[in-house]
Simulated scan of single mutants.
Amino acid sequence: MSGGPLPWLLTHGSAALLFAALVAGGVGVPIPEDLVLLATGILAHQGVLPLPLALGLALAGVLCGDLALFLTARRLGPKLYEHRRLRGLLPPERRERLAKLYSRHGGWVVFGGRFLSVLRGAVFAMAAVQGMPLRRFLLWDVLALCVSVPVVVGLGYVFSHSVDRVAHGLGRVEHGLAIAAALGLVLLVTVRALRARREARPPEGAESHGRQAPPVH
């Protein structure tokens, strides 16, 4: 097994440690969330944790980390964009594009951001700065967590005998989930655009009915 945080988590793993690692990773500590979830599944397979407890622990830990990040970003407001990490991830032009997406499809942006490890924190922080209600953020984040957490924990549980191979394949899994979320967002936008165009179109015959006949000389 290669070095890194995964072997350490498997050696010292406990419910409290895994939970603390997930919360810390959510607020910006450089602890890869997916590796912690993978370790949770492996420890469940080894009998250190019951699988239902492992899943519940993983969901609660990630959600608490996301919630802490959201509340911190909401308290800091727009000055959060001056942070050195967010300046690189969210330059003005990218913030403008994201702001337009939030105004139209804020919930789906949060849902898709859950599957983008590089932009996840920035997407959640911007949701808070853009004024998304906490209840709405939690709804969409929980929906995404119900997909991502069982997948990664399940991979650790099922393939615990080949940890390194699964760890290297996590990027592909995350990439596939991100593509699926993006396709869902594109489909939603397309359906809404077609529906709006259909509703804006006048009923057949209304246009000709509204025209006045030319005067007869």
Rank of each mutant, 00 (worst) to 15 (best):
L67K: 00
A68G: 15
L69V: 14
L71P: 05
L71S: 14
L71Y: 15
L71A: 15
T72C: 15
A73R: 11
G77C: 06
G77A: 08
P78N: 14
L80H: 06
L80P: 07
L80G: 08
L80K: 05
Y81M: 11
Y81T: 07
H83D: 04
H83M: 06
H83V: 03
R85W: 12
G88S: 00
P91C: 02
P92N: 01
E93C: 03
R94I: 03
E96A: 15
E96P: 05
E96G: 09
A99T: 13
K100H: 13
S103F: 12
R104Q: 13
R104G: 02
H105I: 03
G106W: 04
G106H: 03
G106S: 00
G107P: 00
G107T: 03
V110W: 01
F111E: 03
F111Y: 09
F111T: 05
G112T: 11
G112P: 00
R114Q: 10
S117L: 09
L119D: 01
R120D: 15
G121Q: 14
A122M: 03
V123L: 07
F124M: 12
A125F: 03
A125V: 04
A125S: 11
M126C: 00
M126W: 09
A127M: 06
A128K: 11
A128Q: 12
V129P: 12
V129T: 12
Q130Y: 14
G131I: 06
G131L: 09
G131H: 08
M132V: 07
P133N: 03
P133Y: 04
R135L: 06
R135A: 10
R135Q: 08
R135I: 02
R136C: 03
F137L: 04
L138D: 00
L138I: 12
L139R: 13
V142W: 14
V142F: 15
L143G: 08
A144R: 10
L145R: 12
V147Y: 13
S148Q: 10
S148R: 09
P150L: 12
P150T: 10
P150N: 11
P150D: 08
V152D: 01
V153D: 01
G154T: 07
G154C: 07
G154L: 03
G154H: 09
G156N: 06
G156D: 07
Y157M: 03
Y157F: 14
F159C: 05
F159G: 01
S160F: 07
H161P: 00
S162C: 04
S162F: 01
V163S: 04
D164P: 01
R165V: 08
R165M: 06
G169A: 09
L170I: 14
G171T: 10
R172W: 10
R172Q: 08
V173W: 01
V173N: 06
E174A: 03
H175L: 11
L177K: 02
A178V: 06
A178H: 08
A178L: 15
A178E: 10
I179C: 07
I179W: 11
A181S: 14
A182D: 07
A182T: 14
L183T: 11
G184N: 15
G184C: 15
L185S: 06
L185R: 08
L185E: 12
V186Q: 05
V186H: 00
V186D: 08
